[in-house]
């Protein structure tokens, strides 16, 4: 919330100061933030598209961590092809009746609210006729079911909506504006805010410490991989500072967001693979294994890194965006 206006619980500071805050946050060994879908995605969206009443109602509670937010966009048949959304919001007097099946909602099992993409115009197709509507996850008719993750942990979930009645003032932006609002949100997600460079630079620092402890048993290619990981995390930091410098001067962020997302997600995997190669045959051991030694959380981090190229718009979709918007190639 460093960059949020003070009246909504933020500090009203610019992006460079946000980067500095993030550096200190990760240097202190602070944890992942359970409300990151709220503060980094829906918060900025609400500030841009929400009414004054909506901002006053949701933002301070989000900033304080009183409300945890989840995203409810994807559906079983609408993943990369998000415009295939089928969940409906049927107008009913002064409200909407929500029905449908949302999936891959990160942290929905822990969350209080979700921001969802619904078809408000039943006759519409594709990108048209969609609206962004928020709903409480404890409303009658909402059922949240956890989906066990690749690492066995609970994180993302399915959300079943069966005739959930919400007042119309929970719609963000105009009816039918859902698609363009969601695309702007996706820009926030892939852009600066989702992955601050300090997180990766701290991981790279730990990687070098791990390498030092095992240097004698490491082949030269492992050292090369460690070196590359550190350089890549630095390149990412420099790139974000570069973008922040331009944004502070009034520039925007467009397809660069897609470039960032590809880079950090691939970098994160490479960094963790380097760690696993240092650990060698012990890499498969869980932390509680008596012989685990310093295997630490590298395996957890590795599994989590594999999600990077998938969520927030798969890297395949990002490459299409880069090719079409930066390189001017025709749409398929």
């Amino acid at each position: 919330m460093v960059t949020w206006p003070e009246r909504y619980g933020g500090r009203g500071l610019d992006l460079i100061r946000w980067l500095i805050f993030e550096e200190e946050y990760w240097r202190a060994g602070a944890p992942l933030r359970v409300n990151q879908n709220g503060v980094f995605l829906f918060g900025p969206t609400l500030m841009e598209y929400g009414s004054d009443e909506q901002k006053a109602r949701f933002l301070p509670r989000m900033a304080a961590g009183d409300d945890i937010w989840a995203q409810a966009w994807s559906e079983p048949q609408a993943g990369s092809d998000l415009a295939a959304v089928r969940a409906t919001a049927r107008r009913d007097g002064d409200g909407y009746i929500l029905s449908g099946h949302k999936i891959w909602s990160s942290r929905a099992v822990f969350a209080d609210w979700a921001f969802g993409l619904f078809r408000t115009d039943p006759a519409s197709e594709r990108h048209k006729g969609l609206s962004l509507i928020v709903f409480p996850l404890d409303a009658p008719g909402v059922r949240v079911q956890a989906i066990p993750q690749i690492d066995g942990e609970t994180g993302f979930a399915e959300i079943f909506l069966d005739g959930v009645r919400v007042p119309a003032d929970l719609r963000i932006g105009g009816e039918g504006d859902g698609w363009s609002i969601c695309m702007a949100t996706a820009g926030f997600e892939r852009g600066l805010m989702l992955r601050s460079p300090a997180r990766f630079q701290m991981a790279a620092k730990r990687l070098v410490e791990l390498f030092r402890a095992h240097e004698a048993s490491c082949p030269p290619e492992t050292k090369a991989a460690v070196l590359q990981a550190v350089m890549d995390t630095d390149a990412y930091a420099l790139s974000i500072y570069w973008t922040a410098s331009r944004m502070r001067a009034g520039g925007g962020i467009g397809a660069e967001a897609s470039v960032n997302k590809i880079f950090w997600s691939e970098m994160d995997i490479a960094l963790h693979r380097a760690a696993l190669s240092i650990l060698g045959a012990r890499a498969e051991l869980l932390r509680e294994a008596p012989a685990a030694g310093d295997v630490g959380r590298w395996l957890d981090g590795y599994f989590f890194s594999l999600a990077g190229p998938i969520y927030a718009g798969s890297n395949e979709i990002q490459k299409n965006i880069i090719a079409e918007r930066m390189l001017g190639l025709p749409r398929g």
Partner: peptide, 18 residues
């Protein structure tokens, strides 16, 4: 073709600030 060229562009974008 898109992905081939986009992957190269990503390398370029992360070389420039360095």
């Amino acid at each position: 073709i898109k992905h081939l060229l986009a992957a190269a562009q990503v390398k370029i974008e992360f070389t420039r600030p360095v």
